[in-house]
Nucleic acid binder design. Structure first.
Length: 160
DNA sequence: GTTGAGCGTT
Protein backbone atom coordinates (compact mmCIF):
# COMPACT_ATOMS: atom_id res chain seq x y z
CA UNK A 1 0.00 0.00 0.00
CA UNK A 2 2.64 2.35 1.09
CA UNK A 3 4.72 1.45 -1.90
CA UNK A 4 2.11 2.16 -4.49
CA UNK A 5 1.22 5.39 -2.79
CA UNK A 6 4.71 6.77 -3.06
CA UNK A 7 5.09 5.40 -6.56
CA UNK A 8 1.92 7.03 -7.70
CA UNK A 9 2.90 10.20 -5.98
CA UNK A 10 6.13 10.20 -7.86
CA UNK A 11 4.61 9.65 -11.19
CA UNK A 12 2.28 12.52 -10.84
CA UNK A 13 4.77 15.19 -10.23
CA UNK A 14 6.31 16.08 -13.37
CA UNK A 15 8.82 18.31 -14.73
CA UNK A 16 8.79 21.94 -14.02
CA UNK A 17 10.54 25.15 -13.79
CA UNK A 18 13.77 26.51 -14.97
CA UNK A 19 13.21 25.60 -18.56
CA UNK A 20 11.90 28.60 -20.45
CA UNK A 21 10.70 26.43 -23.28
CA UNK A 22 8.17 24.69 -21.10
CA UNK A 23 4.87 26.47 -20.89
CA UNK A 24 2.72 24.28 -18.69
CA UNK A 25 4.65 25.12 -15.60
CA UNK A 26 1.62 25.74 -13.49
CA UNK A 27 0.34 22.27 -14.19
CA UNK A 28 3.59 20.62 -13.32
CA UNK A 29 4.79 22.75 -10.49
CA UNK A 30 4.19 21.68 -6.95
CA UNK A 31 2.28 23.82 -4.54
CA UNK A 32 5.29 25.38 -2.98
CA UNK A 33 6.28 27.39 -5.95
CA UNK A 34 8.87 29.50 -4.21
CA UNK A 35 11.74 27.21 -4.99
CA UNK A 36 10.26 24.02 -6.31
CA UNK A 37 12.94 21.45 -6.64
CA UNK A 38 11.77 18.97 -4.04
CA UNK A 39 9.52 16.17 -5.11
CA UNK A 40 6.84 15.01 -2.77
CA UNK A 41 7.44 11.67 -1.14
CA UNK A 42 11.19 11.84 -0.81
CA UNK A 43 12.89 12.17 2.53
CA UNK A 44 16.41 13.25 2.01
CA UNK A 45 16.81 13.66 5.74
CA UNK A 46 16.25 9.99 6.43
CA UNK A 47 18.92 8.50 4.22
CA UNK A 48 21.67 6.16 5.37
CA UNK A 49 25.12 7.74 5.43
CA UNK A 50 27.29 7.47 2.39
CA UNK A 51 30.35 5.30 2.37
CA UNK A 52 31.76 6.67 -0.84
CA UNK A 53 32.28 10.13 -2.34
CA UNK A 54 31.19 8.77 -5.69
CA UNK A 55 27.59 9.18 -6.71
CA UNK A 56 25.41 7.54 -9.29
CA UNK A 57 22.95 9.91 -10.90
CA UNK A 58 19.93 8.45 -12.63
CA UNK A 59 16.97 9.96 -14.36
CA UNK A 60 18.93 12.46 -16.37
CA UNK A 61 17.46 14.10 -19.38
CA UNK A 62 19.01 13.00 -22.60
CA UNK A 63 19.98 16.55 -23.32
CA UNK A 64 21.96 16.79 -20.10
CA UNK A 65 25.68 16.79 -20.70
CA UNK A 66 28.82 16.43 -18.62
CA UNK A 67 29.04 20.16 -18.24
CA UNK A 68 25.46 20.54 -17.14
CA UNK A 69 25.96 17.80 -14.60
CA UNK A 70 29.06 19.51 -13.36
CA UNK A 71 27.29 22.83 -13.09
CA UNK A 72 24.47 21.31 -11.12
CA UNK A 73 26.68 19.46 -8.65
CA UNK A 74 29.69 21.70 -8.30
CA UNK A 75 27.89 23.93 -5.82
CA UNK A 76 28.10 21.20 -3.19
CA UNK A 77 31.82 20.74 -3.35
CA UNK A 78 34.78 20.31 -5.56
CA UNK A 79 34.09 17.79 -8.26
CA UNK A 80 36.84 15.39 -9.16
CA UNK A 81 34.72 13.92 -11.87
CA UNK A 82 31.38 14.53 -13.55
CA UNK A 83 30.34 12.38 -16.41
CA UNK A 84 27.18 11.55 -18.24
CA UNK A 85 27.35 8.06 -19.66
CA UNK A 86 26.77 8.05 -23.36
CA UNK A 87 26.07 5.20 -25.67
CA UNK A 88 29.25 4.48 -27.54
CA UNK A 89 27.40 3.65 -30.70
CA UNK A 90 25.02 6.56 -30.92
CA UNK A 91 27.02 8.96 -28.79
CA UNK A 92 23.92 10.05 -26.89
CA UNK A 93 23.22 10.08 -23.22
CA UNK A 94 22.07 6.91 -21.55
CA UNK A 95 20.24 8.99 -19.00
CA UNK A 96 22.56 8.45 -16.08
CA UNK A 97 25.96 9.50 -14.95
CA UNK A 98 28.50 9.77 -12.18
CA UNK A 99 29.90 12.51 -10.03
CA UNK A 100 32.80 12.17 -7.65
CA UNK A 101 33.78 14.44 -4.79
CA UNK A 102 36.90 14.69 -2.72
CA UNK A 103 35.06 13.94 0.49
CA UNK A 104 32.03 12.00 1.59
CA UNK A 105 30.67 15.09 3.30
CA UNK A 106 30.44 16.91 0.01
CA UNK A 107 28.80 13.91 -1.57
CA UNK A 108 26.26 13.87 1.25
CA UNK A 109 25.39 17.47 0.65
CA UNK A 110 25.06 16.84 -3.03
CA UNK A 111 22.74 13.94 -2.50
CA UNK A 112 20.56 15.83 -0.08
CA UNK A 113 20.62 18.81 -2.36
CA UNK A 114 19.93 17.06 -5.62
CA UNK A 115 18.12 13.80 -4.93
CA UNK A 116 14.58 14.09 -6.16
CA UNK A 117 15.16 17.46 -7.72
CA UNK A 118 14.95 18.67 -11.24
CA UNK A 119 17.63 18.89 -13.84
CA UNK A 120 16.77 19.87 -17.35
CA UNK A 121 13.13 19.18 -16.66
CA UNK A 122 13.67 15.67 -15.34
CA UNK A 123 13.63 14.34 -11.82
CA UNK A 124 16.99 12.93 -10.97
CA UNK A 125 17.93 10.44 -8.28
CA UNK A 126 21.21 10.50 -6.45
CA UNK A 127 22.58 7.29 -5.01
CA UNK A 128 25.98 6.02 -3.97
CA UNK A 129 27.76 4.44 -6.89
CA UNK A 130 28.35 0.75 -6.70
CA UNK A 131 31.58 -1.05 -7.09
CA UNK A 132 31.71 -4.36 -8.89
CA UNK A 133 31.65 -6.16 -5.55
CA UNK A 134 28.64 -4.16 -4.42
CA UNK A 135 26.78 -5.00 -7.57
CA UNK A 136 27.30 -8.69 -6.96
CA UNK A 137 26.10 -8.30 -3.38
CA UNK A 138 23.01 -6.45 -4.48
CA UNK A 139 22.09 -9.30 -6.77
CA UNK A 140 22.23 -11.80 -3.96
CA UNK A 141 20.09 -9.86 -1.55
CA UNK A 142 16.88 -9.18 -3.35
CA UNK A 143 15.25 -7.69 -0.32
CA UNK A 144 17.54 -4.73 -0.64
CA UNK A 145 15.45 -1.67 -1.21
CA UNK A 146 16.16 1.43 -3.17
CA UNK A 147 19.06 3.51 -1.90
CA UNK A 148 17.32 6.76 -2.59
CA UNK A 149 14.49 5.88 -0.28
CA UNK A 150 12.10 5.51 -3.15
CA UNK A 151 10.78 2.08 -3.90
CA UNK A 152 10.52 2.53 -7.61
CA UNK A 153 13.58 4.21 -8.93
CA UNK A 154 11.65 5.28 -11.94
CA UNK A 155 12.30 8.43 -13.78
CA UNK A 156 9.75 11.14 -13.79
CA UNK A 157 9.61 13.79 -16.35
CA UNK A 158 8.14 15.62 -19.22
CA UNK A 159 4.81 17.02 -18.47
CA UNK A 160 2.27 17.43 -21.17
C1' DG B 1 15.82 15.00 -31.87
C1' DT B 2 12.86 12.80 -25.67
C1' DT B 3 9.48 9.38 -23.55
C1' DG B 4 13.15 5.96 -19.87
C1' DA B 5 15.83 0.42 -16.97
C1' DG B 6 19.85 1.22 -14.78
C1' DC B 7 26.03 1.45 -12.41
C1' DG B 8 30.88 4.09 -16.58
C1' DT B 9 35.40 4.74 -19.65
C1' DT B 10 40.38 4.41 -19.01
Amino acid sequence: MALSASTLGLRRLLSATFSPSLKNLSVCATRDSSSIPQIEGIDNSNLPPLTTPKLFISGLSRITTDEKLKEAFSRYGQLLEAKVITDRASGRSKGFGFVKYGTIEEAEEARKGMNGHFLDGWVIFVDPAKSAAQKATAKQSEAYSSPSGVKANKTVGWCG
